[in-house]
Amino acid sequence: MRYAMAIDTKKCVGCSDCVIACQTENNVPIGYCRDWIVEVTDGTYPQLEMEIRSERCNHCDNSPCVRCCPTGASHIVEGGIVLVTPNECIGCGACIASCPYDARYPHPDGHVDKCTFCVHRVEKGQQPACVGVCPTNCLYFGDLDDPKSEVSEILKTRKYKTLIPQAGTEPQLYFLI
């Protein structure tokens, strides 16, 4: 099993509903976020192109955060989801410094926090909160090892990219372009 997410940058309007849904679902402390919107404007005026991305932890296959964690608090569970166990985390910040996507942050309680792909919902067969609320249905979540899953199907038909693949982390967020 290999969970992954596909984000349709052509459908995303940057409404931040995914951000609010995540903060509500996961009780994210005020002023922090586990997922966020990035808008990239590129080109020479007036020929401009805009890309809107809903970003979060890439749940990398080759995750530097898990490698550098001195206590094993950062770990990978079934399906490739990268998680942090709060009472094993000493808050040293090594994983935060190791993430090229800056997807982690120090929780005010002391431990490090990040996107969990809503593992508590996924275990029950539900979708992550961000996927469920997206008004344009631009987020797809599922098992890459299952060729019939929604995310496998969409990646067969669409062009996509990952973020900084040259960092060697084998990220598992696929941005449809």
Partner: peptide, 13 residues
């Protein structure tokens, strides 16, 4: 030009 705008403002990040 390429302008990147991020909605993320996590303290210390």
């Amino acid at each position: 030009e390429e302008i990147i705008t991020s909605g993320r403002m996590n303290p210390k990040i």
